[in-house]
Design a protein around this nucleic acid. Sequence first.
DNA 1: CGGCTCGGTTAACGGTGGTTAACCGTTCGG
DNA 2: CCGAACGGTTAACCACCGTTAACCGAGCCG
Lengths: 183, 183
Amino acid sequence: MTPRRRQILDTAADLFAARGFHGVSVGDIGAAVGISGPALYKHFSGKEDILGQCLLHASERLLEGARALTAAPETPSADALGALIAFHTDFALSQPSLIVIQEREWGSLGEQARAQVRERQLAYIDVWTRALRPHRPDLTPAQARAAVQAAFGLLNSTPHSARLSRATMRALLTRMAHAALTS
Amino acid sequence: MTPRRRQILDTAADLFAARGFHGVSVGDIGAAVGISGPALYKHFSGKEDILGQCLLHASERLLEGARALTAAPETPSADALGALIAFHTDFALSQPSLIVIQEREWGSLGEQARAQVRERQLAYIDVWTRALRPHRPDLTPAQARAAVQAAFGLLNSTPHSARLSRATMRALLTRMAHAALTS
DNA sequence: CGGCTCGGTTAACGGTGGTTAACCGTTCGG
DNA sequence: CCGAACGGTTAACCACCGTTAACCGAGCCG
């Protein structure tokens, strides 16, 4: 991954998060990185490809991070859920644009890219539900999945407020998520 | 409000929620109601006006509902928060499209419409924070607002899952929101 | 009956967007 | 030294979108 590609993906993610995939033109993306429109085609096959790389990258980082956490020997399995909450909170606070586009723009993808992203998202949810099960044996699998998605909604609310310092926001969100999931 | 107008607003809200404001053409909206493209201009001044009416309608219903609840004599002020949670949950479960576009498409509006919507959204948040304060005197006003927005994220996650029956989802979300806010 | 309003239609216009083509300077390996 | 690969440029193409114009049939009021 050349630095130019990474720069394009980062700024494109910010633009997509701010104005939506269809609200951003390739000219906009090019201008934001200091080149102009068609030059992007030297790095990507098209606009949809740029979004696809953003989403594949984001979903892979989330899934890999969660798997690494739950497999780590220094994470006691009793606290896997707390580790996941902390991990996801940090991700959402440091990469709000990726969080936003991952939850609202995956429908703008072509069929095969969308399938790959969805697969990783479902696997990520699955890691969470497995970590939640010991705390909430009363929930059916479907209920556990819905609870996990509700927790994502809570943690992903960060781009909609963001008036607090990062440490304060982190403490508030982790506490609320923990309470919502384990009460 | 003629029935035709209401039909257009309802189907346009569904389309905007599914594909985004810029991802829907006026031809799409017209086709979805059985008329064709330019006929919409007999009912609205333009595409942006349609979105504006959707958002004004949604934000007004939320704010009016919340004010009616907290002012109602049959709602003990100690349980205003619970009443708001139940109200918002019902709204999100019955009008998911309005919830979605209200949280992600208000930036696509012109200046004056956006200002009106934002004003009502802020007033709605304010009703919530006032109801939250007695339960959480430890939170600063800014923290209370962030907590309320996190609760919105939790409750508004409904369009992203929706595999459960409405009653089950309702019970799950209200319990989680209550725990997240009052723990 | 006559004309106005209402709610449609199709045609056309201007602007914009994604994509391709053609071209060019720089760098770098043989 | 030469040529190929790289990463840019501008011009052009075509499709599509939002909007306006011109027209038209059905009801309805005077």
